[in-house]
Nucleic acid binder design. Structure first.
Lengths: 109, 109
DNA sequence: ATCATAAGACACCATTAGGTGTCTCGTCAA
DNA sequence: TTGACGAGACACCTAATGGTGTCTTATGAT
């Protein structure tokens, strides 16, 4: 089991647009050092580092030191929680299905 | 088009656990007045009302006045954005597929 | 007509979030 | 061996967040 007590809510982690961009960047790059990530944003290294810490706390990112740089890697698995959560509500936005599906839901109980 | 300029980021709206519980309650109840929703929480009416405003700003909730009460209803459609977003990353958590799918992704370009 | 209830509108408060800058310390290159 | 670079660790600031309580108004019940 790789999912050890996430100190930080994954919903919270993805709430910030900067962090979502970080996730995207890491998805495309597989592994990136902090300074390289920082170059993509209009904010200081400290700020980016903090965002990465938050992602790490949520288990969405892993880091390892290589020489003097710290390289980050995406670990998307915790996003599954989001997917499961949102999947539950998907039945509510099938426009004409919304009322029907709810009725069916009630029947099942 | 029912999706008119969401003043509030939907990622932000679902970040708070209280708001997620509100969404859940509304999903089950179809329509609920503020006071009844408030009864489910250990916080004041004002606080719950604020959370509902935020959900409304994100387009996740609709309200109508009936007599002296304000009834709320879930409008799940904006959650589709979350689903689309997270679906993009689902290829990264298929354990043994994660590296492979990334390689395939690169091939396509 | 009176009184209780539902909720909007504020003013207020403490904590967190998201930035900044600076100092220090390893590590790599000359 | 002396810099320059990458990054951790702080201290710090401001604005936003998530609560509170109170006052007022509209509605419904007696």
């Amino acid at each position: 089991m790789s999912e050890n007590s996430p100190l930080r809510d994954v919903y919270d982690a993805i709430a910030d647009p900067t962090r979502r961009r970080l996730i995207r960047l890491l998805a495309e790059a597989d592994e990136m050092p902090l300074h390289e990530l920082t170059a993509q944003f209009e904010m200081g290294r400290t700020a980016v580092s903090k965002h990465l810490s938050i992602l790490k706390e949520a288990g969405l990112v892993r880091d390892r030191k290589v020489g003097r740089e710290t390289r980050f890697r995406l670990h998307a698995a915790p996003l599954r929680e989001i997917q499961d959560w949102v999947a539950f509500y998907s039945k509510f936005w099938s426009a004409n299905m919304s009322r029907l599906s709810r009725l069916l839901e009630e029947e099942e109980e």
